[in-house]
């Protein structure tokens, strides 16, 4: 049963991803991205990783896509048609991607993975404990660093997006 769900989800992901990168309209591209992200969240659910699925939906689908939509609305006429690249470049890139894909798949399929059969659900409390533990194998340091990074990116975003006009108004 899970098999079929997985196949449907992967079909969604791939089709909408393709649509997203080849759409002519900006907003549609963003919405297709949203669908891709939801598909990926579905895979997380299938794999018994509920926490991350929730985060995916909240942060990515709810936060990032909204952010992107806002920026699209700020800089675009929403009904404007996007320009597509010329054919030679497209062909070249497709070839490159196919080649790269071939390399990846060749490597992957020639390797024997020691799969361990299990059906463990990842608990959120386990994740939380691990994230904040001081012992060896604890992730407290990356946790703190990430918080610093987020602070820096917030400040950076504000400074960059503030622009000159607001600056001059404040100083002059």
């Amino acid at each position: 049963m899970e098999k079929y769900i997985f196949y449907i989800l992967s079909a969604i992901i791939i089709v909408f991803a393709l649509a997203s990168v080849s759409s002519r309209k900006m907003l549609r591209s963003v919405i297709y991205l949203l669908f891709v992200l939801c598909g990926i969240a579905g895979i997380y659910f299938l794999i018994d990783y509920n926490f991350l699925a929730a985060i995916q939906l909240t942060v990515y689908a709810g936060g990032i896509v909204v952010l992107i939509i806002f920026s699209v609305l700020l800089v675009h006429h929403i009904e404007m048609e996007l320009e597509m690249v010329k054919m030679p470049r497209k062909i070249l890139t497709v070839l490159l991607c196919v080649l790269g894909l071939g390399v990846f798949l060749y490597t992957i399929y020639n390797n024997d993975f020691n799969v361990v059969e299990n059906y463990i659900t990842t608990n959120t409390s386990d994740i939380g404990t691990k994230l904040l533990s001081y012992d060896s194998g604890g992730f407290i340091l990356p946790f703190e660093v990430i918080s610093l990074l987020l602070l820096a990116s917030m400040i950076g975003a504000i400074v960059i997006a503030k622009g000159r006009k607001l600056n001059d108004k404040n100083n002059g």
């Binding site: 991803a17 196919v98 790269g100």
Partner: peptide, 16 residues
């Protein structure tokens, strides 16, 4: 992998 390379295709190809 397919998703990864679709992303690369889009990165190299898109004009916006």
């Amino acid at each position: 992998s397919i998703l990864f390379f679709i992303g690369i295709y889009g990165f190299i190809t898109r004009k916006n």
